[in-house]
């Protein structure tokens, strides 16, 4: 078995060029850390938008003077729509009461109004899959056709903004992750290419003595894996420091940041990715080994 010998060759080579390799590891670590932070941002944006359906609602304002029967008919028709998850009927009096609750000590501004100016309304929670711009627009248009509904309101601008922020963040992050990953692979590629050229004569001799491609490649692939995983460990350490500072130090000063989530699965994934990047860089650097 030549695998132990391959490990020996790989570690000898890593040690011989220890400073260049250390620099490569730190560069890989920096790249992976940037990828981790980007992933953290995307993850939290995604999480926030996933919570949106639970908080999102559509308000239907009813015409004044609808009888109990007519109101019941409207609610029944609304409930028939497939996008509807839940409805809540708010009478004129309840609406005023809720407004007073919101205004708290400033409820004096409602004094002297005489008649209650607020319309009765229906608050609708939509099904998760229906909370997107197209579905909500269509729902609003359909529902507005029901007789007895005066107005439909759902914060179109807010929904649009959230969607475009999410889209931009995802596209930007994906681009950054691709660029940074390519950079990290290139660092591994360069490190292995240099090691390969440094040992070119030796490799030629190995070939003439009957070495297979596996025997020649193995030490370099091990070298690439070690560089990659070392970078991964360093970036995981940096990511852990970031996690610790953010969740134990910064949140004490800024409690709102407690809503942020750092997925701990990132750590094993980071190590696996760094290993694959190291192997990938080495394999690309070695290319096709020819014997004649």
């Amino acid at each position: 078995m030549y695998i132990l010998y391959s490990f020996r060759l790989a570690f000898q080579s890593l040690w011989r060029e220890k400073w260049i390799n250390l620099l490569s590891v730190l560069t890989i670590a920096a790249g992976l850390f940037m990828i981790t932070l980007t992933f953290f941002v995307v993850y939290n944006i995604d999480l926030a938008t996933k919570k949106l359906p639970a908080r999102f609602s559509v308000m239907l304002y009813l015409n004044d003077g609808l009888s109990e029967q007519e109101t019941g008919d409207v609610i029944a028709l609304v409930k028939k729509n497939n996008a509807v998850e839940q409805t809540r009927y708010i009478t004129k009096d309840k609406a005023l009461q809720e407004l007073k609750g919101v205004l708290k000590n400033a409820d004096y501004i409602l004094e002297g109004l005489g008649e209650n100016p607020l319309p009765a309304s229906i608050e609708i929670k939509l099904k998760k899959e229906s909370v997107n711009i197209e579905s909500v627009k269509k729902f609003a248009a359909d529902i507005k056709k029901i007789k007895g509904i005066a107005e439909v309101e759902y914060g179109e601008q807010f929904l649009n903004s959230i969607h475009s922020i999410k889209g931009m963040a995802e596209a930007g992050s994906l681009s950054l992750i691709i660029v940074m990953s390519a950079g990290v692979i290139f660092v591994c590629y360069s490190a292995i290419k240099i090691a390969f050229y440094r040992r070119k004569e030796e490799i030629e001799t190995f070939k003439l003595l009957g070495a297979t491609r596996g025997f020649i490649r193995a030490p370099f692939v091990i070298e690439g894996s070690v560089l990659g995983i070392s970078g991964g460990i360093a970036s995981a350490a940096a990511a852990f420091a970031f996690y610790y500072v953010l969740f134990y130090k910064v949140t004490a000063a800024i409690p709102i940041l407690k809503i942020l989530v750092f997925p701990l699965e990132t750590f094993p994934a980071l190590l696996l990715c760094s290993l694959l990047i190291g192997i990938g860089g080495a394999v690309i650097a070695l290319g096709r080994i020819r014997f004649s």
């Binding site: 004569e201 030796e202 030629e204 001799t205 070939k207 003439l208 003595l209 009957g210 070495a211 297979t212 491609r213 020819r290 014997f291 004649s292």
Partner: peptide
């Protein structure tokens, strides 16, 4: 086949003119 070359070379010992020692 190119992949068979190493196995043929194992049957041939070579004393190179330039030694090729490591």
């Amino acid at each position: 086949k190119e992949s068979s070359i190493p196995f043929l070379r194992r049957n041939i010992g070579v004393v190179f003119q330039d030694f090729r020692l490591l």
